[in-house]
Design a protein around this nucleic acid. Structure first.
Lengths: 156, 156
DNA sequence: AAAAATGATTCACCTGTTGAATGATTCTGT
DNA sequence: ACAGAATCATTCAACAGGTGAATCATTTTT
């Protein structure tokens, strides 16, 4: 039952990587049931919060490269969740917005995120959960991860 | 500077995903300076702990598929860090072992892991670090992540 | 001895991602 | 107003990491 190395339990950084991957994988499972990827979810969330965003600024906030955003929006537009409309003031830009269906999807995603979090933190008491949240928030802030910017595989 | 949604800070599951990705990315940077991938590091660590392992059981402990292990060992063998030797008792199996160079690399990796952890947890006091470690260990254990088995991108 | 199981390998393939080049539009300095 | 620089979206070739099916050699089962 114990670690094979009795003198020291597993490294905290290791646990963080493992649990982070677990959390991402579980979240991806859930969004897949809606036919969405975690990246799709990130786009919907951002457009819900900031309608009219251009693909460029969406890419920035997502921590992605602009060329990555193109097929992402393509797919969401095809499925009727997002609209592209040329900005009247700067016709280089698109203005991206959620359709009604997109808003509905976003609502479902919020529910998913809630259940996801509840499931993940189920093994902890509510005090422990709060403590964990506070410690992680402190870490994220110190490592400049507290913006809306998501990097690497964390684009969700 | 504040979150655009003032009523609630960011979800803990989200922070976990983000910080896990950050930890993985930083670790990957460091191993890359040794010319190793995180997967290489996982192989070396496991072979250091359990010499003579077959590729099959290595795959099991890594949470990988056997065909994935082949190029991994190929590369390590080419670089002189690992040896393949047919088992005398069952000539289907290889017995994998670290060379002296492999052991040296493993030593460097341990140093890297130590500095990695120190850097990651630097924003916390030592009590907070201990607390975080304990909470994460509890979560990992409850989610059956406490074995040597690494899944997904966590193969390091 | 025949049949089934096991370990390693190959191979075609997939997903997600990146960077460079391109065309359209807008901005800048003179 | 104009030439040149910058910006947005897009395409495209390419890459890394990873997977599953098929194959061959060997061992186990019956």
């Amino acid at each position: 039952m114990d670690s094979p190395d009795p003198s020291r339990s597993k490294r905290t950084a290791f646990l963080l990587s493992q649990l982070g991957a677990l959390a991402s994988a579980r979240f991806a499972e859930r969004t897949r049931e809606l036919g969405l990827t975690p990246s799709d979810a990130g786009v919907l969330r951002l457009l819900g919060r900031t309608p009219g965003l251009s693909q460029r600024s969406l890419a920035d906030r997502l921590g992605a490269v602009p060329s990555r955003v193109v097929p992402l929006i393509d797919s969401l537009e095809t499925r009727g969740l997002v609209t592209r409309e040329r900005s009247s003031t700067d016709r280089r830009n698109y203005e991206l917005r959620l359709t009604d269906e997109g808003m509905k999807a976003l609502g479902k995603l919020r529910g998913i995120a809630e259940r996801h979090e509840a499931e993940l933190l189920a093994p902890l008491t509510s005090e422990q959960s709060a403590q964990l949240g506070s410690l992680l928030a402190r870490l994220a802030s110190a490592h400049a991860l507290d913006t809306d910017l998501h990097r690497d595989t964390t684009v969700q």
